[in-house]
């Protein structure tokens, strides 16, 4: 059946919560309201208010309480309403979620999933459009996952929920109600730490994730019209990254373009570029190109399109790399 990403995520939550009663969902407006993007729609009716918990409006408390639950027998699924509001909880994530397994030498791991919508392109208010995934990739112990299709969203969320490590699951708000896709009714896992080759190509590898994937596909279509065969890699797990997939593809094509909607400096593109130069320098026929947002605060909706990475810019990056 063809469903949206929001519906696929809802299915994943409902199926895992039905399978294992240790899963407890908590967040702001996740109950009767079903979440502001309706990802938790209907779950309180299925599982009751003890397992679908509307919390006070307090992100640090929400993550901190989830830590205590995870350390003592539950599998909390914490929804942060928007990534832009997660920062009060950053101390909890950095100081505890990511490192408790290490600082207690395995005695108190905190398996939990923090779900949150992120990214631009939905004409949102201030603080609702940032793409700060790189902040979380700097924290050893944390797994950072971003789906780009309904199929992957369901499978990656189920894999994240079953992971013994804490996961921050970033849901591209622009794709919640994007293209529908056939998604199997039964539960399945899409493995973590494994990138997906969206399409094969021979001339250049285009690497991205989340809402950039459809943008990259459009650019690749146009590149094909100009005789350039682009391979598209969707990282899916940003940290720990599937380095082998990146390197194998770049060794094959000899060129790489990294695309992200986050600002350029110290974005994940820098890491990927360094990874390639450290490990596949002699395969490269051109410098690794980065197509990213500029290093400015993301504009409000009227100027959002000027800022946002679009297919034309990705295509320009591809062609520049080809012409080097």
């Amino acid at each position: 059946m063809k469903i949206t990403m929001a519906q696929a995520l809802n299915q994943a939550l409902a199926q895992e919560m039905a399978r294992d009663e240790r899963y407890v969902l908590l967040g702001e407006d996740v109950g009767p309201d079903g979440g502001v993007f309706r990802v938790t729609d209907g779950l309180i009716q299925k599982f009751g208010p003890e397992r679908v918990i509307d919390t006070p409006l307090a992100e640090s408390g929400l993550i901190g309480v989830s830590i205590g639950m995870a350390a003592f027998g539950l599998r909390p699924i914490a929804e942060i309403q928007f990534l832009g509001f997660i920062y009060p909880a950053f101390n909890q994530i950095l100081s505890h979620v990511a490192r408790l397994r290490n600082r207690t030498r395995g005695r108190y791991p905190v398996p939990m999933v923090i779900r949150t919508p992120y990214g631009a392109g939905v004409r949102a208010l201030e603080h609702h459009s940032e793409s700060t995934e790189a902040l979380f990739c700097q924290l050893p112990g944390l797994t950072v996952v971003v789906p780009s299709t309904p199929y992957d969203a369901k499978g990656l969320l189920i894999a994240s929920l079953r992971s013994e490590d804490p996961v921050i699951f970033l849901e591209p708000s622009r794709l919640y109600r994007g293209e529908k896709q056939d998604v199997p009714e039964e539960p399945y896992e899409v493995p973590l730490r494994a990138a997906r080759t969206v399409r094969e190509g021979t001339d250049v590898t285009v690497i991205g994730w989340g809402a950039m994937v459809p943008v990259m596909e459009k650019a690749a279509d146009e590149a094909a019209g100009r005789g350039v065969s682009a391979e598209i890699l969707d990282l899916r797990t940003l940290s720990p990254m599937d380095r082998e997939a990146v390197l194998a593809s770049v060794r094959k094509t000899g060129r790489a373009v990294v695309v992200h909607e986050a600002p350029k400096t110290c974005g994940l593109g820098a890491e990927i570029s360094a990874l390639i130069s450290e490990n596949a320098l002699l395969s490269l026929r051109a410098p690794v190109a980065r197509v990213t947002a500029p290093d400015i605060t993301i504009p409000l909706p009227k100027a959002e399109d000027d800022y946002y990475v679009n297919p034309a810019r990705v295509l320009a990056g591809i062609l520049k790399t080809m012409e080097f």
């Binding site: 003890e50 408390g61 901190g64 309480v65 205590g68 639950m69 003592f72 101390n91 600082r103 005695r107």
Partner: peptide
Amino acid sequence: FALAIPVASQIPHAVGAALAAKLR
């Protein structure tokens, strides 16, 4: 639980443990 150095950050953890105990 492991002692906390970031001041007060352990307080929500204790609440989570109590909430988990209640649900379980």
